[in-house]
Simulated scan of single mutants.
Amino acid sequence: MIREATVGDVPEIYAMVRELAEYEKALDEVRASEEQLREALFGARPAAFAHVAQDGGGKVVGFALWFLNFSTWRGVHGIYLEDLYVRPAARGGGYGKALLGELARVCVARGYERLEWSVLKWNRPAIDFYEAVGARRQGEWDVYQLTDEALGRLGGATPL
């Protein structure tokens, strides 16, 4: 079963964020707190949204966390999938595909024309999964980020 996350799901989602970071060999980079996640998803001005996957017993076994983006070329919003994670014991049960399917349904229902995300180049199981559902790598684009000191310098918080 796939459903919109509730505030009561935040502890499980936060635990899975940490599990995902550990899988991606980046647990030491997780700075977010459970409270920050709760505020982002359910605060006065939510900036992110989440869906969870539950097994037959009602246990949360996966999540998709996303936010809106906008295409100047298409003139409409889309969904940027920040994280998709299914716990190892539940993999192969169709939860990941169901989570992606739900986000695709949200896009179609709201007139959004794009669902996109990033994947680590070494994460072959994820790449194979995404390609199996019809997603295609955008080969001419590279992802760039400004964080930490570089962000502070460019944003004027620290001298250039």
Rank of each mutant, 00 (worst) to 15 (best):
A150D: 11
A89D: 14
A64R: 01
I13D: 02
D142N: 13
Y23G: 08
V119A: 12
K59T: 12
A104W: 02
K59M: 05
V133Y: 05
L151T: 09
V143F: 06
P159S: 05
A132C: 05
E82A: 14
E140H: 15
V17Y: 09
D28V: 10
E22R: 15
R110I: 01
Q138V: 15
T158Y: 13
F129I: 00
R110K: 13
W66E: 10
T72Y: 01
H51P: 00
V30W: 06
M1P: 13
I2L: 08
V143R: 14
D142Q: 11
A47Y: 07
N123S: 04
K25Y: 07
S71I: 10
F70N: 02
Q54K: 12
L151V: 06
A44D: 11
R74H: 13
I2F: 08
V106W: 11
V10G: 06
G94K: 04
G152R: 12
W141Y: 15
M16I: 05
I79N: 11
V10Y: 07
E12F: 04
A109G: 09
E39L: 10
G96D: 04
E149W: 11
V108H: 12
G139P: 03
A98G: 11
S71P: 03
T147I: 12
A47W: 00
E39N: 12
A15I: 08
L27F: 03
D28N: 14
Y85K: 08
S71H: 04
E149N: 06
A109Y: 01
G156M: 01
M1S: 09
D9V: 06
M1I: 06
E116Q: 13
P46Q: 07
R91M: 07
V76W: 05
Y95W: 13
A132Y: 01
Y144Q: 05
A150S: 13
E113W: 14
L41H: 08
V7G: 07
V7C: 08
I13E: 06
A109W: 00
P11S: 03
D83F: 09
Y130Q: 01
T158R: 15
R31T: 14
G8T: 01
A32Q: 13
Y112K: 03
D55W: 00
